[in-house]
Simulated scan of single mutants.
Amino acid sequence: MKKVYGSASEALDGLLFDGMFIAAGGFGLCGIPELLIDAIKTAGTKDLTFASNNAGVDDFGIGLLLQTKQVKKMISSYVGENAEFMRQYLSGELELEFNPQGTLAERMRAGGAGIPGFYTKTGVGTVIADGKEHKDFDGETYILEQGIVADLAIVKAWKADATGNLVFRKTARNFNAPAATCGKICVAEVEEIVPTGSLDPDCIHLPGIYVHRLIAGEHEKRIEQRTTRPAA
């Protein structure tokens, strides 16, 4: 089965459609699938729902798709770095479903594991719990959260082999692995594709069975808030 494609647009060919649900990996601007996001922008696919820890910044990451108004709804934990997101939400142009970070990660993991829902104490007594089933376990109240199953998962890894085994680097591992598993189709972009068999099996973070298509490319790797101290 061919998994390696020549470009992001080739890897997404035949997968995109208006109104689809996409799970995207990344944490802040670390480990976001920037090449695939740019290809979605170029394709012009609209009315998208994204499940992602954040929405990038105004001119990078999912923020690019907000600028072109291709996103209808965000399921996110944090959106504080994106002024266009705030503007669209406050004006009623964009739907928003806030999730605590751990809940969002577990919703993705659960969906990928075939678990339709789970109970958690996180959010009990807050607006997060509004409209959700409540249940007591050992005298504690929990709320029911649904697993996420997306039409497409887009993720970014450090290395891969041609079979799709992925190795993430540091912070990029956080949301990429659960996001990858919860998509009906997963497309991954990496910095380097190495020969099959050269990756240490004990160092593989995501088995290739979850990855359907794969590209390698150059990445910008922006930093959200660069803080430095004066030279001594």
Rank of each mutant, 00 (worst) to 15 (best):
M1S: 05
E10K: 12
A11Y: 11
L12D: 02
G14V: 09
L15I: 01
L16P: 12
A23R: 01
G26Q: 10
G26I: 05
L29T: 05
G31Q: 03
I32C: 07
E34G: 04
I37A: 04
K46W: 02
T49C: 02
F50I: 09
N53W: 05
F60L: 01
I62P: 05
I62H: 11
G63C: 05
I75C: 09
Y78A: 11
V79M: 14
N82V: 10
Y89G: 04
L96N: 10
E97I: 14
F98C: 05
F98V: 12
N99F: 10
P100R: 08
L104N: 04
R109F: 01
A113I: 00
A113M: 08
Y119N: 11
G123T: 14
G125T: 04
A129Q: 13
E133Q: 10
F137Q: 02
D138P: 00
Y142D: 07
A150K: 12
A153F: 00
T163D: 06
G164A: 06
G164K: 14
L166M: 11
R169K: 13
K170P: 00
K170W: 03
R173E: 11
C182M: 10
C182H: 13
E191F: 04
P195H: 12
P201W: 05
L206Y: 01
P207T: 14
G208Q: 05
G208E: 02
I209A: 05
V211G: 08
I215Q: 05
I223F: 01
Q225S: 04
R226C: 06
P230H: 09
